[in-house]
Nucleic acid binder design. Structure first.
Lengths: 157, 157
DNA sequence: TAATAATAATTTAATATTGAACTATTGCAA
DNA sequence: TTGCAATAGTTCAATATTAAATTATTATTA
């Protein structure tokens, strides 16, 4: 069951693709997040720690861009993670406009523990697609994302 | 550029698919939402009115399910739309647990005006995929969504 | 029929998120 | 070198969102 919008075939196609993408995204997110229930940390906090684990110490700007949220939001997220002892702001003498956010040993232990179930859930979510279908799907998403970024820049000129 | 996670090929595949899906979703949403800028209404408000335009009067429960948000949120959204004169709660004698939310004439005019650009943007966003690719993409999303809903129910038993 | 369960909406408190204004620092160009 | 633009982060106010508790109504069932 897709859109009820009365339009041309190409319109119906695109509207259905978009609504199904949103619903799928939502269902996947809800399913995956079960691995964070009762962990006491939020998705954004987990995403931040996961990033630091895999990419090493980062400035908040980078975190906010990759997490797709505002810098102000990351300030709060890092504040809370720092209070809990999972990350640490360390000064960066080379450029004093920003600090580098480091994962603490305690944060590393937590995120590694949660990551195991998290990855299992993602693999399980996508297992309905064959490996080749997953590759095709990734490519489609990549193309859609790039295309929209380009079009958005164009229209903002 | 995808995940830096060190894992098996099937793990990398699924993680990349998920991260690219999230980014694409975000880029598309940002691009599409340009049609609502300066309109004074939010995405949720627009989605609600669009739904009422195409499906007719609905109870709030249905709206919240289709909009993928909480019932409490819809109470507020409908409150605000009603204050602005775009929708109206009408009593439903057959079952007095809920009202039916009707789109007013004024709401109809607004949503029809916005819908034109909105649809154009969605078509434009997905135009990077061929019609057949859009069909394939829709199917993948539908399968992913259903699969996760099923798995979630299973694990909650 | 009476009691219980289920459904729909609302309220409330807490949290998440954003955008805009502001400070500090750095890079660049006249 | 000095002034201006750009970058990074923070703060603040406003809004969005949720989860849980509550009320009202309807459905079920013993």
């Amino acid at each position: 069951m897709g859109t009820k919008y009365q339009g041309s075939e190409s319109e119906i196609l695109a509207l259905n693709a978009w609504i199904k993408m949103k619903r799928a995204s939502n269902s996947i997110q809800n399913y995956i997040n079960q691995s964070l229930e009762n962990s006491g940390i939020t998705i954004t906090q987990f995403g931040t720690m996961e990033m630091l684990l895999h990419l090493g110490p980062l400035p908040q700007k980078t975190i906010s861009q990759k997490m797709l949220c505002s810098p102000g939001n990351i300030t709060l997220v890092v504040d809370n993670l720092e209070k809990a002892g999972f990350v640490q702001r360390k000064s960066n003498p080379g450029d004093r406009r920003y600090h580098l956010i480091h994962l603490t040993k305690q944060g590393q232990i937590l995120v590694k523990r949660l990551l195991e179930k998290h990855v299992k859930n993602i693999v399980s979510a996508f297992s309905i697609l064959s490996e080749n279908e997953q590759r095709v799907f990734s490519d489609y998403c990549e193309n859609l994302g790039k295309h929209c970024e380009t079009k958005k820049k164009e229209s903002n000129q």
